[in-house]
Design a protein around this nucleic acid. Structure first.
Lengths: 119, 119
DNA sequence: ACCTTATTTAGCAGTTATGTTAATTAATGA
DNA sequence: TCATTAATTAACATAACTGCTAAATAAGGT
């Protein structure tokens, strides 16, 4: 969980905190200042500031100085990279879905008469 | 980074370590025993055992006792869940790709005469 | 029973993460 | 210049992560 590690490790480490995921969800609706991002949370401003630093370090967000505010916006490239990593495993859950679907079909065949048979 | 946290946090925390991702990559090629999984790494057996515990706790793998071995296999459901979470943000990187494509088109228009113009 | 192999648990150390409060920096505006 | 607002950094406490070595558990073979 060393934040300076490879990009993928930094991305997943950043995403492993629910506060940070909530911040990203908020930023998905548009840019926001640090204060706006902090408002919904019960934790202190410095704590939010550190979460933002983690997100910025992982290059998941960008912080742009605007007068006395810092406007934060989503930077999607690293999310894209992480999603591509997960895609490697897509075949596995799709295979599982197929076997589930197959299993459900089996149940239908066992529990009910085939479609179109007399009632 | 509390491993007992919500499933998504546990998943991302588990994925934030390169050794654990390498273990998953190995398991994508088929089930393996702990010893087989440990072989490529320079770290001790207990360290691997703990990584496997993290992966098992995150429900990314299953460990099945077979004689004196423990066969490990990939369990894709949580990866699927994480991939679905990321899909929420797909529009953002796709939008970025669009603007990059647009930018490249702009360059082409600037640097070259339009297609079909006299040489 | 005993030895070997496979794997985990215990105990320890060093590093990293997260939160707090208090102090600091930076910009705005009277 | 001074007060206000926005946000960060400093200093500290606590908990978690990761690795090690040594010891324990579990199963199999002789």
């Amino acid at each position: 969980m060393v934040s300076q590690a490879d990009p993928l490790s930094a991305t997943f480490a950043a995403l492993s905190d629910p506060t940070r995921r909530a911040i990203l969800a908020r930023l998905a609706q548009g840019p926001a200042t640090v204060g706006e991002l902090a408002a919904p949370f019960a934790i202190s401003a410095p704590a939010i500031s550190r979460h933002l630093k983690v997100l910025e370090h992982a290059k998941l967000i960008q912080r742009i100085k605007e007068a006395q505010w810092r406007r934060c916006k989503l930077e999607p490239a690293r999310l894209h990279q992480a999603a591509e990593w997960m895609d490697q495993y897509r075949q596995f859950w799709e295979a599982q879905f197929d076997s589930l679907a197959q299993f459900i079909d089996t149940l239908k065949e066992t529990d009910r008469p085939p479609l179109g048979s007399p009632v």
